[in-house]
Simulated assay, not measured.
Amino acid sequence: MSFDLQLKGQRAVVTGGTKGLGAALVTSLHDAGVEVITTARSAPERPVAGVTYVKADLTTADGVTQLAQTVQQRWGHADIVIHSLGGSTAPPGGFAALDDAVWFNELNLNLMPAVRLDRALLPAMLAKGDGVVLHVTSIQRALPLPESTTAYAAAKGALSTYSKALSREVTPKGVRVLRVSPGWIETEASVAFAQRMADQAGTDYEGGKKMVMDWLGGIPVGRPAKPQEVADFITFLVSPRAASVAGSEHVIDGGTVPTV
């Protein structure tokens, strides 16, 4: 049996592709023979040869337009769009610490880039009747941490709802829409988050890491996921090997969410 994912020659756009999960996705797709355009606000420290990097701020409408125009001018259309951009810069302290600026920042980072980029790139995918759009959500939409992730969780919840609605609209026209809901991934951003929590509590990183795991109610596999583990799972889902998978949300959280 061959494990070829049949992705060679496909064209994929990955948002947030210079760090964390996004960087792992770029590597995974590139290794599978996919042409990749990715973007971030800063250039990568270790660029992958053959990958096109677009420096743009996708939290702004202008940044999304810049990326979409690059895709359209170079390829005409994308075969795969993966929205891995996301994160949180909200302070700890519960709901009272979240002013309007924090709320808008979380929405502009975790929801609006996907909405805007889909609006720009989906028409060409629909015209050819083929493609895959995948939104990276989060188990936080079902398991928010009131001390620190309320706004992030709400934004990811909105992304999940938007994604499901989009799937109902465009899947019958040939474009699969999927969601992947990771638990805690040990990316640069999550390490920084655990360190912020550790600093607040007067402990070290391992102490902060334990705090996060405890807040989540524990991770049965005993550790956060590695970025490459999640990236490889997503690469499979966007491949022709998973052609019957559509409209669904796939949890990869080490068993964190305690409910079915």
Results as ranks from 00 to 15, higher is better:
252 I>W: 01
146 P>Q: 05
217 G>K: 04
11 R>H: 04
87 G>E: 09
202 G>N: 06
224 P>D: 12
93 G>N: 07
178 L>F: 01
90 A>L: 09
215 W>Y: 03
221 V>T: 12
163 S>A: 14
149 T>S: 14
72 Q>T: 14
77 H>I: 04
7 L>R: 10
155 A>G: 10
65 T>M: 02
174 G>V: 08
59 T>K: 14
244 S>V: 07
78 A>K: 07
133 V>G: 01
22 G>F: 09
219 I>N: 02
123 P>M: 11
52 T>Y: 01
175 V>E: 00
176 R>I: 01
249 E>M: 04
113 P>F: 09
249 E>S: 10
96 A>E: 15
68 A>Y: 09
53 Y>Q: 03
171 T>W: 07
133 V>M: 03
138 S>N: 03
60 T>K: 14
1 M>D: 10
215 W>E: 11
139 I>P: 13
245 V>K: 03
38 T>A: 14
93 G>F: 08
24 A>Q: 08
258 P>D: 09
74 R>G: 00
31 D>F: 00
27 T>I: 07
169 E>L: 13
176 R>L: 06
15 T>A: 02
252 I>G: 12
13 V>W: 01
144 P>Q: 11
27 T>H: 13
26 V>G: 04
141 R>S: 13
112 M>H: 13
116 R>L: 13
228 Q>M: 14
100 D>H: 04
84 S>R: 10
204 D>H: 03
29 L>K: 01
233 F>C: 03
97 A>V: 11
101 A>I: 00
203 T>W: 09
89 T>R: 12
168 R>K: 15
124 A>R: 15
82 I>E: 00
152 Y>M: 02
183 G>T: 03
78 A>Y: 01
3 F>Y: 07
207 G>A: 14
206 E>S: 13
34 V>C: 10
84 S>C: 03
58 L>H: 08
62 D>I: 05
2 S>R: 13
211 M>G: 02
155 A>T: 10
156 K>I: 04
37 I>S: 05
140 Q>K: 05
131 G>P: 03
77 H>E: 09
88 S>L: 13
208 G>L: 04
259 T>V: 11
209 K>D: 07
116 R>Q: 14
228 Q>V: 08
205 Y>R: 08
194 A>E: 15
125 M>H: 08
211 M>T: 03
259 T>H: 12
259 T>K: 04
34 V>K: 15
242 A>F: 08
81 V>F: 15
176 R>H: 06
249 E>G: 02
86 G>A: 08
239 S>P: 05
41 R>K: 13
196 R>I: 01
80 I>W: 10
133 V>I: 15
55 K>A: 05
31 D>M: 07
26 V>Y: 11
136 V>A: 02
